[in-house]
Design a protein around this nucleic acid. Structure first.
Length: 507
RNA sequence: GGUCCCAUCGUCUAGUGGUUAGGACAUCGGCCUCUCACGUCGGUAACACGGGUUCAAAUCCCGUUGGGAUCGCCA
């Protein structure tokens, strides 16, 4: 048996939606797991809604997620893109026309000279006959008078699929990879338009089947909203004399129990997760749960996902998208899964956004991250937590300064400045893990406080504010260690000076 | 309404005939503590309902109810 070929076929009408990302993920996963091929095809036949900008946004989102494709356009202007190219449907019109005419010749399709307006009119007439409003008319489909005619007229025509014989009792069925066997009565299908009368572009079902067929796609994995398209597509495969791919329909992502997640529901664009500082694998770990789970595990790298994925663990029921849970997963990913090196690379742009031009390999970067990675749920938050380590002077929380920078603390702050100079090792002086240097420093600090007859509970916040400008930070010893003896001492002395000159407030 | 699909804590889920129905997020409380977090301990909280099958059902079957998808010369 030949290797599986899977595809993701987005329509470029906006940025990549997380639902689309989920679908792409499952296709990619099986391609990687099975040693098959992952194809990217752009279904850009709706010229009114498609934009080149969207094409690029989708490609970028896929790249950011790390869902690399083996075949397909490398960029928005890549006309070839691989052995089955072009991969933009808008560039394949001739092919669709050719297949459509072939179906007309073989009797599976016909030229319908009715105009869309005539069909609308027929619908209206039927509604009037039955005595209901047009949009209340159900279960009625337009039957073209051209269905069994072969005449060629000199006027525009749509090519329609002859879906089934009028008295067909056939059940169209397939074994769905996730839903199991599904049977749908053929007579519930209508004569679908393959190619419009007014445009060379194919309609969805036709373009999809022609492409999946000519591109050798073996597995069609998509959202459950496509279940209803499947029988029509099966008819099309049959008409083409083509082998059926395996279909798999994934559960939907819902906003709540009664609404499916739409483009207006907040953070649904993958690009937004990128700019908010999510980790690609963090997002993917959450998205994969919409359809797949592995025991109670919820943190997966892509490599792990490829290793563990299989179709027997795929679920059928729709899931409600929970932004909080997504963020919680990302937080755990930052704290527990991502390496300091990876975080160091990824946090740089977020530091830059704060005006901090920290370069990769900055001597304080790795240590800074180890002190704050348990405190952030996004890279943006991580950058915020690290901010004070990299500023020449910390940005002081003024209301906290009023509370903690008081004359009575000045002497202590000076004394601790000296302590820092004498006890905080420089980076060159220490080796080994951060924690190995921190523990003794922490101990020394406590001893010093005892010697000075200072209570940590009292002096802690002034010192914290001195070192960081903030009232919520990592522990004191950690900050001193990251900052180093000189900077620590400098900040403590400045705080001491400021405290000394602070006026005593009258309550 | 036709057709199709689905159904375990608020949410995502584990569970594949015998469990005190487990975990995670959220939530509530305790502990830890130099702040905020992290961590940790514990609490509240679920098998939609009704019939079968079986010694035994969250698990299998049927029905009901509830929810979703779809019904374009969009994708």
């Amino acid at each position: 048996m030949s290797k599986p070929r899977l595809r993701f076929a987005p329509s470029p009408t906006g940025s990549l939606h997380i639902g689309g990302a989920r679908t792409a993920l499952f296709n990619w996963l099986w391609a990687r797991k099975s040693g098959g091929t992952f194809v990217l095809r752009v279904e850009d036949t709706d010229v009114a809604r498609n934009t080149r900008q969207s094409v690029e946004a989708i490609f970028n989102a896929l790249k950011w997620l790390g869902l690399d494709w083996d075949e397909g356009p490398a960029h928005a202007d890549d006309a070839a893109g691989g052995p089955h190219g072009p991969y933009f449907q808008s560039q394949r019109s001739a092919l669709y026309r050719e297949f459509a005419e072939r179906l007309v010749r073989s009797g599976h399709a016909y030229r319908c000279y009715c105009t869309p307006e005539e069909e609308v009119e027929a619908r209206r007439a039927e509604a009037a006959r039955v005595g209901v409003e047009v949009d209340k008319l159900v279960g009625w489909t337009f039957v073209s008078p051209w269905r069994d005619k072969t005449a060629e007229l000199d006027k525009p025509y749509a090519i329609k699929l002859k879906a089934h014989a009028p008295d067909s009792k056939e059940l169209i069925q397939w074994k769905d990879l996730v839903l199991g066997t599904i049977k749908i009565p053929a007579n519930s299908l209508r004569d679908e338009v393959l190619i419009r009368s007014s445009s060379p572009m194919p309609l969805y079902n036709f373009g999809c089947v022609v492409d999946d067929h000519t591109m050798g796609i073996t597995h069609v994995i998509r959202g459950k909203d496509h279940v209803i398209n499947t029988p029509t597509q099966i008819l099309l495969y049959r008409a083409l004399g083509a082998e059926l791919p395996t279909f798999g329909h994934l559960p939907m992502l819902m906003k709540d129990q009664s609404t499916k997640l739409s483009k207006r529901d907040g953070a649904v664009g993958v690009d937004q997760y990128d700019s908010q500082g999510y980790l690609p694998d963090g997002l993917l770990s959450y998205l994969v749960r919409f359809g797949w789970s592995f025991g109670n595990e919820e943190l997966f790298t892509k490599a792990k996902l490829v290793e563990l994925f299989d179709w027997t663990r795929v679920s059928k029921s729709d899931g409600i998208y929970d932004f909080n849970k997504c963020r919680a997963i990302n937080q755990k990913f930052i704290a527990k899964v991502a390496t300091v090196d990876e975080l160091a690379t990824r946090v740089l742009p977020f530091l830059a956004k704060r005006g901090l031009a920290v370069r990769a390999g900055h001597p304080r970067l790795a240590d800074a991250i180890t002190t704050v990675k348990h405190r952030a749920d996004t890279l943006a938050a991580l950058a915020d937590e690290m901010d004070f380590y990299f500023r020449a002077k910390p940005e002081v929380d003024e209301s906290a300064a009023k509370q903690y920078f008081k004359p009575e603390f000045a002497a202590a702050l000076d004394a601790l400045a000296q302590f820092a100079e004498e006890n905080v090792p420089t980076r060159d002086e220490r080796s080994g893990a951060f924690a190995d240097a921190k523990a003794p420093l922490d101990e020394a600090l406590r001893k010093k406080l005892t010697d000075l007859a200072l209570d940590m509970k009292v002096i802690g916040q002034p010192v914290r504010l001195a070192l960081s400008g903030r009232i919520a930070t990592p522990d004191l010893a950690s900050m001193m260690l990251v900052l180093g003896p000189q900077v620590s001492a400098l900040r403590l002395r400045e705080a001491a000076a400021r405290s000394r000159s602070a006026t005593v407030e009258n309550p």
